[in-house]
């Protein structure tokens, strides 16, 4: 089967090369000649000992958790809002997909300019409200929040669409029964809708998690992980080690990448198990 050959050639082989990279001491010269000495886990030891490792891991966690929390709750609120049909609801819901469909370089550069310290529209609005301007992208206190805000904006549509289709799958007679029993709108949501939506919510969150761990473009384009690593995550760190300098250190870069793969795969397997269980229950 050609797809097996394709998978072996274009997934397994690059991954194998990546693991190989992480276990050898590559320099530019040995990279071309392919005779880099095997150094075992030296690259991993180097990465763990690096002063960037702790902050990068912490930023990854903050970025992922905060992004997911807001994407999910805003997405869910909007899904509930759109679940009642009203005039224009289909058109508006389609428009909500735009942020998700735009190339990341487009949304990231737009956010960069909106968050510009002197000429950005966000600071202009803050000034109109009497709030001092914020150095969104150039202050180490704010850069991580800035990229997180942009990432939340990009992720809302996905959460909205998936949760909306989850809501549509809940039979309406359940709501009617609850309403007959005298449950208020708020109670109906928390006691009926939310529990019934749990499998879909779990899958949305897990997929969101796996996708957010991978996020690289937004951060790299907006801040390059800076200033002074204040918004560096594992993904951008890995890229910077491998490609960001004049003298690339592929070994440690690949090592960071492989750590990221392990984290993503753990959650990926949880996702697949959850989906299997849901499939078995349905």
């Amino acid at each position: 089967m050609p797809v097996v050959v394709y998978l072996l050639a274009f997934y397994v082989y690059p991954l194998y090369r990546n693991v190989d990279l992480s276990l050898r001491n590559y320099t530019v010269r040995s990279f071309v000649q392919g005779d880099a000495p095997f150094t075992g886990f030296a690259n991993y030891a180097k990465v763990f000992a690096d002063a960037t490792f702790g902050p990068a891991l912490w930023h990854t966690i903050v970025f992922t958790v905060v992004s997911l929390a807001f994407q999910f709750s805003i997405g869910l609120a909007l899904a509930v809002f759109f679940s009642r049909n009203f005039r224009l609801s289909t058109t508006l819901r389609a428009l909500f997909l735009v942020p998700w469909l735009l190339p990341l370089i487009v949304s990231s550069s737009t956010w960069s300019w909106m968050l510009n310290s002197e000429s950005g529209v966000v600071n202009a609005v803050l000034a109109a409200l009497g709030i001092d301007p914020v150095n969104w992208l150039t202050s180490p206190d704010w850069s991580l929040w800035s990229v997180t805000i942009a990432n939340i904006w990009i992720g809302i549509p996905f959460n909205l669409v998936v949760l909306y289709s989850g809501l549509q799958a809940i039979p309406s007679h359940i709501h009617e029964a609850a309403a007959l029993d005298g449950a208020s709108g708020w109670q109906r949501f928390w006691r009926v809708t939310f529990p019934l939506l749990r499998p879909v919510s779990a899958i949305t969150l897990l997929l969101g998690l796996v996708y957010t761990l991978k996020v690289f473009d937004i951060i790299w384009i907006m801040t390059k992980g800076g200033p002074s690593d204040a918004s560096t995550t594992l993904a951008t760190w890995s890229y910077r080690l491998g490609f960001g300098n004049l003298l690339p250190s592929f070994g440690p870069g690949a090592a960071v990448g492989n750590l990221l793969i392990v984290i993503a795969l753990v959650f990926g397997l949880v996702y697949i198990r959850a989906q299997r269980r849901q499939g078995a229950a349905a």
Binding site: Y16, L21, L260
Partner: peptide, 8 residues
């Protein structure tokens, strides 16, 4: 993650 595929 795409970064990892890119390196390979």
């Amino acid at each position: 993650p795409g970064v990892i595929m890119a390196m390979g």
